[in-house]
Design a protein around this nucleic acid. Structure first.
Lengths: 334, 334
DNA sequence: CGGTATCATGTTATCGATAACAATTCGGCG
DNA sequence: CGCCGAATTGTTATCGATAACATGATACCG
């Protein structure tokens, strides 16, 4: 339990140089098979544990890919994260995760922290960052991928979809089914840029279709979820019946709204339509099923992995911009 | 964009030794305030970024706390993770997260990987591990915390609650409200030990109350969620009415069951009671609200943080065993 | 004003693995 | 048997920050 076992100790035990041990433990085929076997055996016996820190230091390659997510407590982001973990794990890379709580200032702090770990790539969620974050990132010769958005002025590579286009499809669908007076349910203005873009998308689309101005229903500061949707509608009471449709920033919010609307005896979709965003499980299981947009979170993760692989293999030179798209999923709430 | 900027470069630029730079950038108060200011200024100008890898190597302290979770896509675990991130972040520690996908073999692989990063502590979810995992961990002089369970034979510290006790409370409540024929809805036997313990708890409690044997409804391999609960009940059709209550392994599964049960025209709780586990948002928002057990995921995270702080401060010697408890939350489904 | 405590900075060695280069061993062949 | 190329193993230097120790500068005291 004293000093830790190093390659030197293993080397001494097998009567060879540390270099040979190093080679044997990796799969360098210049070592003799018998030697490798013996080294591995001894390393095991001594309880040797490889020191990635030393490796990272010496080789100047950390084996980390840094990732920021707004929140982990979100099935979509979690799905992307899972895809990233699995894909990069196969390439021997480890994820270094930070969550921004939907705040760019927090993202900046996080990026600063993550960069000190010398990651081999940086994957950011979203396309809105502080100036300082942009500077930090660009000062480094490091592959950067922004995902979940299609920013105008990207930092590097992009794998995402258009939130406002997706919202436009929802509005189009609502118009097609005869709805005119829309309300948008989402977080307060401020931190959550993705939510803001969705709202703006809805507003713009409504204008384009000549609908009356979209009403804003503020469910509180981001992140908003089921209970916020439920609470804000409950607080409104039957006033909500004045609208034809509630356009919600996400499925969980939509489900919360749906629940409150039903509790007060209104029928969905007869009295009021409701739409979500993100194709969360709850949208498919709820009763009625919620009309939503499928954003293919897992696909985003997979595409990012492919992209990174390409970058590490040196096959990619120019910044890539990949639109994974999104698709309207019509449920029973419209 | 050539070689990276190191402390040596900064030192050269200010005309001092690297040691002074090192001291200035940390908050070593032996450096003169003016010197510190100048160093910081120059470091900034040169775009210096601190190298945690080098620090971790030299000091043999990584600044990492390694954490394994069964899944990130679970509001409860995510909540614990958030609490850990926030709490440890304040202490200057970074989380190194791995997800096991509910499999102990995957956990072993993960632990092996995480240990090479020299974490300062290891936080495992659950109390079931492979023999190899136990050996790996115990061979190291490293603080270990198991959370979300109260294992019989812990590896080190424990912060959790009794899943089987919690299940017993649910069964007790069902008995008190006149239910006798129970079915347990959960994942197939196998990977998910936490699920298995809950099931065993339900079975044992039912026996203790002299109820007929609990029927098993297999929702498929772990992890099971809303759609699995919904699917398995839909597949059963009206046979489900033969039971008095569906005891579900989690709230999402319970919600899935609830939804399918309602779709086929049965009334909850009149025709059938349903219970969940975990006090997820959906339990409070669904219609009717689901009777569940509050497991205080955030509290677990906070307690783990406190415990780690105590350990790092050297205030804790003997292994700690902390039961955060759990509480029945009666909803409208029973 | 000499001497000592305090403050501020510098020097040297080091953490563990590995790239780059050097040396040795071995088998095969004329 | 001697020589050559391929297969193995060894040596040395190094990544960047910092602990431990050493030194130089300054203040303060009787």
């Amino acid at each position: 339990m004293g000093a830790r076992v190093t390659m030197r100790d293993v080397a001494q035990a097998v009567g060879m140089s540390p270099m040979t041990v190093s080679r044997a433990l990796r799969d360098d085929r210049t070592v003799n098979d018998k030697t490798r076997a013996r080294v591995r055996q001894v390393a095991d016996d001594l309880g040797y544990v490889y020191d990635s820190t030393a490796q990272a230091f010496r080789t100047q390659k950390s084996g980390f890919v840094a990732v920021t997510l707004p929140s982990v407590n979100n099935a979509n982001f979690a799905e992307t994260f899972r895809a990233l973990t699995n894909g990069l794990g196969e390439a021997g890379l480890q994820l270094l995760l930070g969550s921004t709580n939907y705040r760019v200032e927090r993202e900046e702090e996080l990026v600063r922290q993550l960069l000190t770990r010398n990651p081999e790539a940086l994957v950011l969620t979203g396309g809105h960052h502080t100036e300082e974050t942009r500077k930090l990132v660009q000062a480094r010769d490091l592959p950067v991928i922004e995902m979940w958005d299609l920013p105008e002025d990207p930092l590097g590579h992009v794998v995402g979809f258009s939130n406002s286009d997706a919202m436009a499809h929802i509005v189009e669908h609502l118009v097609a089914t005869g709805r005119r007076k829309l309300a948008f349910v989402g977080a307060s203005e401020g931190a959550d840029m993705r939510g803001a873009v969705r709202r703006a998308g809805a507003v713009a689309a409504a204008r384009a279709y000549g609908l009356p101005e979209v009403e804003m229903i503020d469910a509180g500061p981001a992140p908003v979820s089921m209970r916020h949707g439920a609470a804000v509608i409950e607080a409104m009471g039957r006033d909500v019946a004045a609208f034809d449709a509630l356009v919600c920033v996400s499925d969980p919010v939509a489900f919360g709204c749906l629940s409150s609307v039903q509790r007060m005896g209104l029928r969905v979709p007869e009295d009021l339509a409701i739409t979500g965003f993100g194709h969360f499980e709850v949208a498919k299981v709820s009763n009625p099923r919620i009309t939503t947009v499928n954003v293919q979170a897992e696909d985003i993760g997979r595409q990012v992995v492919d992209l990174l692989q390409g970058i590490f293999d040196g096959e990619i030179d120019a910044p890539v911009r990949f639109d994974v798209g999104s698709a309207l999923v019509v449920g029973e709430t419209t």
